[in-house]
């Protein structure tokens, strides 16, 4: 019971981060029908920019509210800009070309970012060493939220198996309960992620821009005919996705503390899988798929074998797709002939 509760907490924490990244995949896919392979790397850049911002702000800002807000803002702005640049110069010129070509540029951008960040570029500007690119060494993300225990749950422990009980040993009262600690940053991260998802939901379904985005996603040619500025909508969608990725990057860094240039590749792949499970192009589906995937992985590790974790993640994907080829919440689109 205690174990299960802890697994659920872990799974939710992981799932919300998958979800934020998966949202970016799904939105871009929605408007462009493009798997944006560079998306995971944008998230990595977000984490690094957050790191740099925290570094520049100095230790004084660590743990303070304005410090954390600034870190998030700087990273969001930077990644938004990066997303815009990537869309403008690597994807837009190829929009009317076969979809695979844009996919290759996406892979190219992903290589450039993930391997480029492995270079160490530290020129001296005005007598000070300025790190422009961080190098391959992993770095420890500063604690922008000072960790504290938010609440400690005492859950009754399961009775030990008879053969495990040492009759000679005195009964230890501490063994009757299992402590489950919920940390402040877990709660804060969860709230931030929920707020972002809620905000996105409102944006997509309640605003004019959201309507334009859905129109472009439905059929961008018709949308253009109806006077929707397709280029601008797509660019904004990219920036939005990248901004979410930046937040995901920082939340990830708060949770797992280690950032390195390749982190986007692995997490990006999982998030993409989550988006497909949920039905790619579908905003709620991405969140559902992400949480389902994370919980599935968590429970496999907890109750089956941890060495099969990745296989189970992909097996889950395949099963979902075979049973529901359009993903959990995806809609079947009839093909017009």
């Amino acid at each position: 019971m205690a174990g299960l509760l802890q697994h659920l907490i872990n799974g939710l924490a992981e799932g919300t981060i998958y979800a934020l990244v998966a949202l970016g995949y799904t939105m871009v896919y929605g408007v462009l029908k493009l798997i944006n392979f560079a998306h995971g790397d944008v998230m990595m850049v977000g984490a690094y920019v957050g790191y740099a911002a925290a570094f520049v702000l100095g230790d004084g800002a660590l743990g303070s509210l304005w410090g954390a807000v600034l870190v998030f803002l700087v990273s969001i702005l930077f990644c938004g800009l990066l997303g815009w640049l990537v869309e403008r110069f690597a994807y837009r010129p190829l929009r009317e070309k076969p979809r695979l070509t844009a996919l290759i540029t996406a892979i190219g951008i992903s290589f450039t970012l993930s391997y480029g960040f492995q270079l160490k570029v530290q020129p001296e500007i005005a007598g000070k060493k300025v790190t422009l690119l961080p190098g391959a060494d992993p770095r420890t993300f500063p604690e922008i939220i000072t960790p504290a225990e938010w609440v400690t749950l005492h859950v009754p422990a399961p009775a030990p198996a008879p053969d495990e009980v040492d009759p000679a040993a005195p009964h230890d009262a501490a063994d009757d309960f299992v402590e489950i600690i919920i940390w402040n940053w877990q709660v804060i991260s969860f709230v931030i992620a929920l707020a972002l998802m809620g905000g996105l939901q409102v944006l997509v379904f309640r605003t004019k821009f959201g309507r334009a985005m859905r129109a472009v996603s439905h059929d961008h040619r018709v949308a253009a005919l109806l006077g929707i500025p397709v280029d601008r909508v797509i660019a904004l969608t990219f920036m939005l996705g990248s901004a979410l990725a930046a937040c995901a990057g920082i939340l990830y860094a708060i949770k797992d503390t280690l950032i390195q240039p390749m982190l986007g590749v692995q997490l990006g792949l999982k998030a993409f899988v989550a988006a497909v499970i949920g039905g790619i192009g579908n905003v709620q589906g991405a969140v559902l798929g992400a949480v389902a995937l994370a919980l599935c992985e968590e429970l496999v590790v907890g109750y089956a074998s941890s060495s099969w974790r990745d296989a189970v993640a992909f097996g889950f994907l395949i099963v979902v797709l075979l049973l529901r080829p359009q993903g959990l919440l995806g809609r079947v689109q009839a093909e017009k002939v």
Binding site: A2, Q6, A13, G302
Partner: peptide
């Protein structure tokens, strides 16, 4: 015996499983 794959940064699932073993 629990395992992970290089590149993972979240070991909470494995550690939670090990916690049960005392």
């Amino acid at each position: 015996i629990e395992s992970y794959s290089k590149g993972e940064t979240d070991f909470r699932a494995q550690l939670t499983a090990l916690k049960k073993l005392k």
